[in-house]
Design a protein around this nucleic acid. Structure first.
Length: 238
DNA sequence: ATGATTTGACCCTA
DNA sequence: TAGGGTCAAATCAT
């Protein structure tokens, strides 16, 4: 199903590439004729339309592809204003579910817009200490979504959270990790913020070659990071 | 004993 | 009202 859609998209891209090539040739002819810039301008616009459309299609394809990776706001580091309300609930353990501040709903919305996604064939130890706080069967996926927050959420009010979801397990596993908010904590177990940057940089390339990546499968987990270990055993929904 | 994970329930958004 | 995110008690691991 998804493969069919991907195949159609590839065909569309191929057709667009042809169209762009033809338009290039047309522009070359027009420039040789040197008959005014009007037609050439038009061809230029057509070309840019082709290029833009191809780019859009490639972006869409990348979102579901193995090495796909999109960063909405990667450049934004440090604490976020929108997370302030997180401290309302986090810093106040006595706050019950029933009297959550109204602002937390707004926070959820904002946090969602300030997130970035990474997809890879392996689960990544990003150097931070994560604590799992939930797992949910997602409607559109056969695999449950795992929810993690920073271990230092309470002691350092670190707002970072992430969600890990297996998109497929065959022929090879594919995971989508959605990060929300950046770490504001400092005493991370393995790395400092600079190595976190390194991780982000690494994730822009093929994640399977990243030095931070960890071999992962159902039988063996070569990591000491708790969240990876727990994820291995919980990929099957109850 | 302490900290992490599991899991059902609650709550909010669309 | 359904789906998704979070909470928190129960359970597990060290």
């Amino acid at each position: 199903m998804e493969r069919q859609v991907g195949g159609r998209r590839d065909n569309a891209i191929q057709e667009l590439l042809k169209g762009r090539e033809f338009t290039c040739q047309l522009r070359l002819l027009l420039s040789l004729d040197s008959k005014g810039g009007c037609a050439e301008d038009l061809v230029g616009k057509i070309l840019s339309t082709f290029t833009h459309t191809i780019s859009l299609l490639n972006t869409t394809a990348a979102a579901t592809a193995t090495k796909a990776e999109s960063f909405d706001e990667v450049s934004q580091l440090g604490p976020r204003k929108s997370e302030s309300s997180s401290g309302d609930t986090d810093g106040n353990p006595s706050t019950s579910k029933n009297d959550r501040p109204a602002g937390c709903t707004k926070k959820r919305k904002l946090a969602a817009s300030r997130s970035w996604v990474k997809e890879s064939r392996t689960l990544v130890d990003d150097g931070y200490a994560w604590r799992k706080y939930g797992q949910k069967k997602i409607l559109e996926s056969d695999f449950p979504r795992h929810y993690y927050r920073c271990t230092h959420k309470f002691d350092q009010k670190c707002p970072a959270t992430k969600q890990i979801q297996m998109l497929q397990d065959r022929p090879s596993p594919l995971y989508r990790t959605t990060y929300s908010a950046h770490h504001t904590c400092h005493n991370n177990t393995l790395h400092d913020s600079s190595s976190h940057q390194h991780f982000l940089m690494d994730s822009a390339v093929d994640s399977t070659t990243s030095c931070h990546l960890i071999s992962f499968n159902n039988s063996t987990t070569t990591t000491t990071t708790p969240f990876l270990a727990s994820f291995s055993g919980s990929s099957s929904a109850p």
